[in-house]
Design a binder for these strands. Structure first.
Length: 588
RNA sequence: GGUCCCAUAGCUCAGCUGGAUAGAGCAACAGAUUUCUAAUCUGUCGGUCUCAGGUUCGAAUCCUGAUGGGAUCACCA
């Protein structure tokens, strides 16, 4: 649309002897009820023309029509100049742009970006909140790759700490040597079982201590179980061989479980970081900060930074005993990541409950003068809520990721069989289809909403398969593929069509927007933009499909043209869904 | 209490840097298949864009305040 913007700039200069910048020309989509594809709002130019909006619009429209070949017609309604672009332009877009192999292939921008996501704790299985995190992170990585970045997907595994010791301790005390093999439980679920077990027994002890007259605070500190867990953590830090063995064994089980979940979800990583390797990092940065005078030491020799001038508080960065806190290791890990990859941008996919933490973290790194600090970005996404409120793992109100996904496959199976869609499918093919559709429904459901917003999930109301959903879009793709194979479509055939109906033109208009949509999604870090785009595209195609017969087109050349348009639509739908991490079936 | 985020149809959500009569899906109702997959399409119903001010030719969008909801303010991670 740049040629229109430039033409408007020229029109204003010719008509009103005023120079305006291209960025001040505001073009928008023409509303459906009016003729045209793009609309110029003329109110801003009435000052220059010293005429009413209608007359100004007419003058500009007249200029455009006379001087720009691609502009076929215009109409003016109040302050709106609706511009109709010639069919030849849209056909040119189809032939010379959309149908090319390199359509929507954005060249490398030479920049490297790291996307850190997932970052699970190894004491319990993944739940719905993690699912949103994983899908967002993976999709964002896909989008950034498509937008020309060199992307590194990183997973920072929280594999140590008191919470890990809790499940280890509970297993040692109550587990009777249970293993994934002996119990038939997935490794991560096995660890989670003992984590819950610990919490229950711990609460029991607290209650008892309170009955014996201790305050709740005292009881929480004095319960034998928590003391034992703390002792285990010390043993771990000292490298005690028995504890290390137990730790290695249980984490090994958990990783096997996670790998299976990741595989089902279809996400992957280029680089794993483990907190057991990074938790001691950051102390040299604390040293650096003290030297630079960014940090200061209190009498007890704990180290702090004063952020009150930035509207934040004082923040501890190192304990008096010289041990790290959360932010210490995050400072160190940030440096480590940069040393490893020298990336231009680094994105942390982490829930919005940590907004404050990341604000502080990034600010500290800026104050330390890290050149790369301005490339840090916290993709802060909203929590997933149930109708009953927030999910709480200890209270058992979480929606387990593995359970959820297998529920989705089951629902997909039922729906597909009910629709009688799998005649002539082999068993393997059926299973693959149920997986594709089930994951498509779930992923689309979670990705279509703006990441920033919190998301409501009702486990009792199964995810829809009709309307604004993943399966709707998948179905559109399968249907196109069916027509193409039925027609024996030959992609190499060339064709020029002279006439265009409105729906065909609309479809081309939507296809044309794909590259800009990728860029927009990348800059705003939002898969939702892709999700909403591909839905509109599929909807437009379905309308076209109903209005126009392809096989029974009025002429052979028209048939070939519609096949081309269909093939292009299928390709863009498939690519866009791929950016969301969603597969599209050839038939369903 | 301080700080931050959110509020659009009964429900779930779109609405780009301010622009036309605020859009989809679900739910409800009425239709469409002798023809390419009806997981589709068409139509009807449904709104004081939480409220009150302000800026502007023009505000769901920007500013201020209020109300309601959420998060956070740990020498937890």
């Amino acid at each position: 649309m740049n040629f229109i913007i430039e033409a408007v700039v020229r029109a204003i200069k010719e008509l009103y002897q005023t120079d305006i910048a291209a960025k001040d020309v505001n073009l928008q989509e023409t509303r459906k009820e009016f003729e045209g594809q793009v609309t110029l709002v003329t109110f801003p130019y009435t000052k220059l023309s010293r005429k009413g909006p209608e007359q100004t619009g007419t003058e500009i429209g007249e200029y455009l029509k006379a001087n720009v070949g691609e502009i076929a017609a215009y109409n003016v309604i109040k302050g709106f100049l609706n511009i109709s672009i010639a069919n030849s332009y849209w056909l040119g877009q189809l032939n010379n742009n959309i149908l090319r192999d390199d359509f929507a292939v954005i060249p490398s921008n030479g920049k490297r970006v790291m996307v850190e996501y997932s970052s699970p704790n190894t004491n319990k299985p993944l739940h719905l909140g993690h699912v949103r995190n994983n899908l967002l992170g993976f999709s964002l990585a896909q989008i950034l790759t498509a937008a020309g970045y060199d992307v590194v997907k990183a997973n920072l595994v929280n594999d140590r700490g008191i919470h890990i010791c809790k499940s280890m301790l509970a297993w040692r005390e109550f587990g009777n040597g249970e293993t994934p093999e002996s119990s038939g439980l997935k490794g991560d679920h096995l660890a989670g079982k003992y984590y819950v077990w610990f919490d229950k027994a711990y609460k029991q002890q607290i209650t008892e201590l309170i009955e014996e007259g201790q305050t709740e605070e005292e009881a929480k500190k004095n319960a034998p179980l928590i003391k034992e867990a703390q002792r285990m953590l010390q043993q771990w830090e000292a490298g005690d061989s028995e504890v290390m063995n137990l730790w290695n064994t249980m984490n090994g089980w958990v990783y096997e479980g996670f790998d299976a979940t990741y595989k089902t979800m279809g996400v992957s990583f280029d680089k794993y970081y483990y907190e057991s390797n990074t938790y001691l990092l950051g102390k040299d940065i604390v040293e650096e900060g003290l030297e630079k005078g960014v940090f200061f030491k209190k009498e007890d020799s704990s180290v702090w930074i004063d952020l009150t001038e930035d509207g934040l508080d004082q923040k501890l960065v190192l304990r008096a005993d010289g041990t790290s806190v959360y932010i210490t290791q995050d400072l160190g890990t940030a440096q480590l990541k940069y040393d490893d990859y020298q990336m231009d941008e680094s994105i942390y996919v982490v829930g919005n409950e940590q907004d404050y933490h990341f604000k502080v973290l990034f600010l500290i790194l800026q104050k330390l003068g890290k050149s790369w600090a301005q490339g840090l970005y916290h993709l802060s996404y909203g929590m997933v809520d149930l109708p009953s409120g927030k999910m709480k793992s200890r209270e058992g109100t979480v929606v387990d990721a593995d359970d959820l996904m297998s529920d989705m496959f089951e629902t997909a199976k039922q729906q597909t069989e009910a629709a009688g869609k799998v005649d002539g499918f082999g068993e393997d093919e059926k299973d693959k289809l149920y997986h594709t559709i089930g994951m498509g429904a779930l992923k689309y459901f979670l990705l279509k909403v703006d990441p920033k917003k919190r998301l409501l999930f009702d486990p009792n109301e199964s995810v829809d398969f009709q309307g604004h959903t993943g399966p709707f879009i998948q179905y559109t793709h399968a249907r196109i593929k069916s027509v193409l194979s039925r027609a024996g479509y030959n992609a190499a055939a060339t064709h020029t069509q002279a006439e265009l109906d409105a729906i065909e033109r609309d479809l081309i208009v939507w296809l044309t927007k794909f590259p800009d949509t990728i860029t927009e999604a990348a800059t705003s870090h939002s898969p939702a933009i892709i999700a909403n785009y591909v839905y509109e595209l599929a909807k437009t195609y379905n309308k076209f499909y109903h209005e126009k017969s392809i096989m029974q087109a009025e002429s052979e050349s028209l048939k070939q043209f519609r096949l081309m348009l269909s093939a292009a639509s299928a390709k863009v739908i498939s690519k866009a869904m791929n950016l969301l991490g969603i597969e599209v079936p050839e038939r369903m």
